[in-house]
Amino acid sequence: MKKFSLFSLTLTCVLGFASCSDNPSAAEDQLANTSAISNGSTNKVAGAPWVKQFEDTFDVGSSLSQWTKEQRADYNSWYCDYYSSVPTTQWRDGKQCLEIKTTKLSTYKYQSGFITSNYQYKPENNTEYMLSANIKLIAMDGGTYKSFTETYGAWPAFWSVQGNAWPTQGEIDIMEGYSFAPNASRFTSNIFYGTSAGNNLLGNSAERNYPNNFDINGNSGWHLYESFWKMKDNVVTVTIKVDNVTVSTYTNSSVSNLNLNNFGKHAITLNVNVGSKDSNFIDPNKINLFTTVMMWVDDVTVYKRPI
Rank of each mutant, 00 (worst) to 15 (best):
S21M: 08
P49E: 07
T42R: 15
V60F: 00
F58L: 00
T57I: 09
S65M: 06
S62E: 00
G47L: 01
S62V: 07
K69I: 03
A27R: 07
D29N: 11
A27F: 02
V45K: 05
K69Q: 09
W50K: 03
F54N: 08
S25I: 14
A46C: 09
D29Q: 14
K69F: 06
S62T: 02
V60E: 06
N23Q: 12
E70C: 07
D74S: 13
N33H: 11
L64E: 05
Q30M: 13
Q66F: 01
T57S: 12
D74E: 08
N43H: 11
E70A: 15
A32V: 07
K44Q: 14
A73L: 10
I37M: 08
S63Y: 04
E28G: 04
S25V: 15
S35W: 00
K44T: 15
P24E: 04
S63F: 05
G61K: 00
F58N: 01
S63N: 13
N43Y: 11
S21G: 13
C20I: 04
A32L: 01
N43G: 05
W67E: 03
L64K: 02
D29L: 14
I37N: 12
S38C: 09
D56F: 03
T42K: 09
N23H: 10
E70N: 09
G47P: 08
A48Q: 07
S41T: 15
V45T: 11
L64N: 06
P49C: 04
E28V: 04
N39D: 08
T68C: 02
T68Q: 08
S65G: 12
T34I: 14
Q53M: 08
L31K: 08
V51F: 00
D59H: 03
S62I: 05
T68S: 11
C20F: 06
F58T: 03
R72N: 09
R72Q: 10
P49V: 07
Q71S: 13
N33M: 15
V45N: 07
Q53L: 06
D59E: 13
A32F: 03
F58Q: 03
A48H: 04
D56L: 02
K52N: 00
G61W: 05
T42H: 11
K69D: 01
N43K: 10
L31Q: 11
D74N: 09
S35N: 04
D29T: 11
D56H: 02
G40V: 11
Q71P: 03
A36Q: 14
A32E: 10
Q71G: 01
S35M: 01
S25K: 14
Q30L: 15
N43L: 13
K52F: 00
G40A: 04
R72C: 09
E55F: 01
S21Y: 14
T68G: 02
V45L: 12
E28T: 08
A27Q: 10
E70R: 08
S63Q: 06
R72Y: 04
D22M: 14
A73P: 01
W67A: 03
F58Y: 07
V45M: 05
S41R: 09
R72S: 10
